[in-house]
Amino acid sequence: MKKIEAIIRPAKLEELKKELSDLEVRGMTVYNVMGRGLQKDIKQYYRGQEVSLDLFPKVKVEIICRDHWVERIIEVILKVCSSGQIGDGKIFIYPLEDIIRISSGERGDDAL
């Protein structure tokens, strides 16, 4: 089992959800996050006082899946979220030790 964490542009979330649903990938956890990478600071001005916006609003999507699903999901994320510009975000893949469904106590793949 793997955990996929994708940090994406907020505007891409709805389309990503739809494309993943077509693959019957339904479960996900979504966070509003702030972060920075290569994207250039944005300047703001308040009564002439210059302020740099150096943390950008992004969305983090966490998806848990079986190992052989990982590449297909990455493919969908790249297709939907890549504009070719810096600021598109990143994907992180983690190995996952176990899953427990709280309502039934099922574990591992059964809990997915």
Binding site: K43, Y45, Y46, R47, G48, E50
Partner: peptide
Amino acid sequence: EWIDHGKPTVFGAVS
């Protein structure tokens, strides 16, 4: 401010 830093702001307009 538009000349000074390049952006016409709402805060500037009301100020």
